[in-house]
Design a protein around this nucleic acid. Structure first.
Lengths: 208, 208
DNA sequence: TAGATTGTTAATCGATTAACAATC
DNA sequence: TAGATTGTTAATCGATTAACAATC
């Protein structure tokens, strides 16, 4: 479906484009030029036009871009309208924070279930999300095709849980454990959220 | 102090080097060559040597690198031994998850305090971290020089809280709100953790 | 129409990779 | 010493920026 290979740098900017266009739309802005958008995002107009040209022609000479239309195009490109589903693995502190506070639906995901082992929470419902026992994961995945597994389990079971998700047919892993998952051989995509790496980069930058 | 400008790409790899070297050290590995390290990290040997050469000469011809020594050098470069301190702003779900689960000290930070407004938690201690009322922030910062403010407050007070931290003299902001902070004019560094951007990048990658 | 702004091609810049003399 | 591996310089590759004809 996709024409050329899109570079990782471009992919990382797409969500920012979406976010900015969404705010522009909410604030009532109808159209914007690449130079105005660039100014507000700290990018060059050239880069924005170059980035967008990877996916099609969304603007109009002399006019610029229609904010709502471009937002829609980018949400399609990002797969926000693909009916993606997610499950959370590990409903401890971080897992619970994500279940209760992160709005998966704003990114086009339906958070369908979570899995844990703690007797106190298995069988309960958290912010509308049922918590099942991890032993039932395979059965669940067989009956409910799932796009993404959100890994918030303890380190020691991270690799094993990842393998079970891959075997169960998920297409991506959103990895909050600080394990480097090695999924070469499968075509499952891993997106790492390494808090410590982020804080250490900040530490470097403030250390003169 | 620093010689040349180090590119952002290099800075982002430093924490990964640190993490890998730490694991190598814990598993008892004493020395490693750039090519072996590259293989295990998915980088070229060239890139590793080029990256390290930004900061000095840490290896030895014919031998490679001493794992423990290189780990120590990189921790210094990252500022992990600079006595950095942090405070958390907003001890709600995400703030609490960070306070209780994220090991700031493993990144060389001392998490000294948190601030909130909820009567139920102001005055309590969470995992050894005292929770103060946000009204006392200025007084606290005046008496306790603080390196980094961890922003986990609600959207609507994010900009204001950031401004108060900047006025209070912090050097960096670790921003978990999905607001794009505009701190041009100050020399405070912002490190954004945009969960939604990360999930949307994953969404793109699994959407063929 | 005239002014504005696109999409795209060419030029520049920066980052990654390759090569190799130095040397442990 | 001989083999291995560094640090660094040069070559390549890719990403960003500039320029401009096309056109709304």
């Amino acid at each position: 479906m996709r024409k050329q290979k899109v570079s990782s740098a471009v992919i990382r900017r797409l969500p920012r484009y979406y976010r900015h266009l969404n705010e522009l739309h909410l604030s009532g802005t109808v159209r914007i030029s690449s130079s105005a958008l660039g100014k507000s995002m700290g990018l060059t107009a050239s880069q924005i036009r170059q980035d967008l040209s990877c996916f099609g022609e969304f603007g109009q000479q002399g006019y610029g871009y229609n904010v709502e239309k471009l937002r829609g195009e980018i949400s399609d490109i990002l797969g926000m309208n693909s009916g993606h589903t997610a499950v959370v693995l590990g409903a401890g502190n971080l897992g619970r924070a994500l279940i209760e506070n992160f709005h998966f639906e704003l990114s086009g995901f339906h958070l369908a279930a979570a899995f844990d082992v703690a007797p106190g929470i298995v069988g309960t419902v958290m912010s509308g999300v049922p918590i099942y026992h991890i032993d039932t994961l395979e059965g669940y995945l067989a009956g409910h095709p799932t796009s993404v597994g959100v890994l918030t389990v303890p380190r020691r079971v991270a690799a094993e849980t990842a393998a079970r998700l891959v075997a169960g047919g998920v297409r991506g892993l959103w990895n909050f454990t600080n394990i480097e998952l090695d999924l070469r051989g499968s075509d499952v995509v891993v997106e790492n959220v390494h808090f410590a790496d982020s804080l250490l980069a900040l530490s470097y930058m403030i250390s003169e």
